[in-house]
Each structure stands twice: as C-alpha cells, then as structure tokens.
C-alpha cells in the first residue's frame, strides 16, 4: 500500500475546496469498507484521503418536499434503525440488514455502496425500484440525476472529478404501495449477493396492477430494472399465470455472468424463481409482511 495523507474537512465547503486543490489525486473516504480493500490490493492508490464519514451535510435522514432524503454518509446500521426508512422505504432497510455483518454495517455508507458501483451492491436494487435520484455537489455546484443514470457499469459512475454524492432522494410511495427486498447468497450472513432483487407494487381499486417496479442485482453490468416484466404487469390482474409469466420475462431480460458464486444459467433460474416469489408476496392480500426473506 502506497503511503497517503489523511484529512477530515469540517464542512462541505472545506471538502470542496480541498478536492479542488488536490487536483484529482484525492479520494473520498466514507466507511472505507470498499476503499481500504482496493488500496490494499493495489487497485487504488490515492495520495490524499478526505474522510467524509462525519460530514454533517450528508448525515441526515429527513422527509421533505415529497421525498425521503437520505444523506450519502448514513450508515447501513443507521438505515436499519431509522423509523422514517422503515415506514417509507422498508425494502431499503431490509437491503441494509442483508448486508455483511454488524461491524461492516456500522461503517458502510449508502453513498459508498452506490459509488462503488458494484452490480452486487445490496442497497441499489431497493433504491432503483424506488426511482431514487442522486443529489450531487461539485465544482459546478449542485446537480440532480436519476440514480440509474449515475451508474454506468462495474465500478463506473457519472460522477465528475471533484464531485461528491451528497444525498439520495426517494419519491414518497403512493398509498397502498408495497415493497420487498430479497437476497440470495452462498450463506446466510456475510455473503456477497449471488442475485438480489427489490420490487414495489401498487394495486388499483379494480384489483389490477397499477405500477410495478422490479430491480435486479448481480445479473447485469449494473443493477437493472426488469422493464419488460414491469410493462407486462401494468394494468393486468395479479393472476398466478401473469405473475409466473412476468417472472419468466425477468429471467430472460437479465444478462448474468458466470463467476465463482454462481453460473449465468443458474442466476437466470434464481431471478425467475425469486421474482415470482417477490410478486406473489407483493400481491398477497393477507399476511402483510413487508419484511424480506433472507435465503
């Protein structure tokens, strides 16, 4: 590991100023649970680390202006403990809970999980299924971007030099909206996702599916939405046949690879099986279980 300097700017202004003068040689350190690993493996060797883990501007969870706004430096443990998140984005709380172990969850931040841009990042399916947006601050001031547009590929984001992810904005769910999150790992804890998925669904008064949102993790270069399955469901009755057909579509539209955790073909089977389970549970009239299921 190459030696580096460490700074902890007190304010957002100090941080932006610091990043400017570092001239691209600085890196943001939030929880460090991804960054340290990469530095140790020699994949990243920043000269200067800016610790943002306690940056006040990125540490809040609030409901404002029709959104649930979550600071990028909020940790997974904090997401799990937040009553606001439990009420407004239960599948995100479940995603946080599914991650790793307590020690990591106490450090790992939402922003770090997003910016790492791993296809297997566990919070991202829950965020994508909620149509989340990213609030970004940088040399050019503030800008807002759909999360789906921030994530470009494995390890690649649309963040420019000196830009910081400040907050994640989740539009408030409509009344009667339900969401769920599932993760399949090789073991019950401390597992990188073989696949993960999140879904949200609202049923119209006539019993038909109003909107359906399905996001799939670890089966494409970025976390993806299963658009074909979603379109298929919208306006349809949540019949057994329809749910099965939509699940099959999700299995077809993803593009998983084979790695040490699973085969590509196996991942497709898992996507179909778990999308089916997800839709069944979202449509179930009784047993209002918003909590996910941890395989």
């Amino acid at each position: 590991m190459i030696p580096f300097d460490y700074l902890k700017p007190a304010t957002l202004e100090d941080l932006l100023e610091g990043l400017r003068s570092a001239n691209g040689e600085g890196a943001l350190l939030a929880g460090g649970t991804d960054l340290h690993v990469k530095m140790r493996l020699g994949l990243k060797s920043p000269r200067l680390l800016f610790d943002i883990s306690e940056l006040a501007a990125a540490r809040n969870i609030v409901e404002a202006e029709g959104s649930l706004r979550i600071g990028a430096c909020v940790t997974m443990s904090e997401l799990m403990a937040s009553p606001l998140v439990a009420r407004l984005a239960p599948s995100l709380a479940e995603a946080a809970r599914s991650m790793s172990c307590r020690q990591i969850r106490n450090r790992a931040t939402l922003g770090g999980n997003i910016v790492t841009a791993s296809p297997a990042a566990d919070s991202v399916p829950a965020l994508l299924a909620a149509d989340a947006r990213a609030l970004i601050v940088g040399p050019g001031g503030l800008r807002e971007l759909a999360l789906a547009e921030l994530l470009l590929g494995p390890g690649r984001t649309a963040l420019g030099p000196g830009e910081v992810l400040l907050e994640v904005l989740l539009p408030l769910p409509e009344a009667g909206h339900r969401s769920l999150y599932f993760k399949v790992g090789r073991r019950r804890a401390q597992a990188i996702s073989v696949i993960s998925l999140a879904g949200g669904l609202s049923l119209a008064a006539d019993g038909r599916i109003g909107s359906a949102r399905i996001a799939l993790g670890a089966v494409a270069p970025t976390v993806m939405r299963a658009r074909q399955a979603e379109r298929f469901l919208e306006g349809e009755l949540p019949s057994a046949v329809n749910l099965a057909a939509a699940a099959a579509l999700a299995g077809e539209e993803c593009s998983p690879i084979t790695d040490v955790r699973a085969s590509g073909a196996g991942r497709r089977l898992l996507v179909e099986a778990w999308t089916h389970r997800l839709l069944q549970q979202l449509c179930a009239t009784s047993g209002d279980d918003a909590g996910g299921n941890r395989p």
Binding site: V184, G266, L269
Partner: peptide, 11 residues
C-alpha cells in the same frame, strides 16, 4: 449444492 443447483436439478 446451492440454490441454483436445486433449481437446475428440478428443471
């Protein structure tokens, strides 16, 4: 034997 193998075997 993992989940994917069970699904594959059943299929």
């Amino acid at each position: 034997v993992a989940q994917e193998h069970i699904l594959a075997a059943i299929h």
